[in-house]
Amino acid sequence: MFLFVLRRIVMSVPTLILVAVIIFCLVRALPGDAALMMLGGNIDDESTLEMMRRQLGLDQPLPVQFLAWLREIFSGNLGISIRTGQPVGALILDRFGVTATVVLLAMGTALIVAIPAGLIAAHRHNTKVDYAIVVLTILKLSMPSFWVGLMLLVLFGAILGWLPTVGFVSMSQDFGLGLTYLILPVTSLALSEIAVMTRMMRAGSLEVMNRDYITHARAKGLPERQVLWRHVFPNAFAPTLTMVGIALAGLLAGAAVTETVFTLPGLGKLLVDSIYGRDYPVLQGALLFIAAIYVVTNLLIDIAYSFFDPKVRLS
């Protein structure tokens, strides 16, 4: 297990370096000039512009710029933001904290709801309970998530006035207040994931329920609850787990729409802002960080997989 993790981490280094090269080239290929943007966008004075470029290191040949960036990466702070002057590493971690809080809470909620819902739907296959669950998930899937987010804001924020609509307060500063700011974005994200995962869980369970070992578990005289939890769930969860992995990585990489709707200072928002501002160091850093998120999430999912499928050996 330890060796497996170590090997995976070592093997991810070339991946990340390759990603770094691609990110660097793409970012440089973006139209626009960071120096021009820094100076407000309408400077005619070529020498001021030149000085700005030199100050930002943009006058160097591209390979030299890339090596400079690599040096920054290995030093850990990923460079300095052109716009704010903050170290990029700290900036990303700060914003990622917000995103991770929202996403992990949403994903946890989604799993707690979706797993039993999917199991029950499959267990009560072709009954009213099953139909109700299926219809609800389809209904949710056919609604755009930003719209659901907005409706939540209108209902609970504007009309009922129970929850704040704009802004964010860190839970580390004021736990109770911070929580109220999180409820709506977490609910909005969780609803989408619940819909997807309930369907996955239901489909997986239906397939497993036809297997001989389920009939056999019943033939042992086990009560239905034990049949479902002990025999159906571990076997039906594996495909859902793959979905969870993909969704988790995608959301951690920036739930940009949700963050925009709920004005959360998350990673997705940082990424969008840095693109508009041609903030090369932040943009590069954020993209590389996202690549790392994917690597780590996949690793975690693989480890989790080994708990649900004994045939998967971590070696």
């Binding site: 297997r211 070992y213 009939t215 056999h216 571990p234 499928d309």
Partner: peptide, 14 residues
């Protein structure tokens, strides 16, 4: 009860 298919009558995750 003993089933035909020994490959599928034991729960693979247990």
């Amino acid at each position: 009860l003993i089933f035909q298919e020994p490959l599928s009558s034991l729960n693979p995750t247990m």
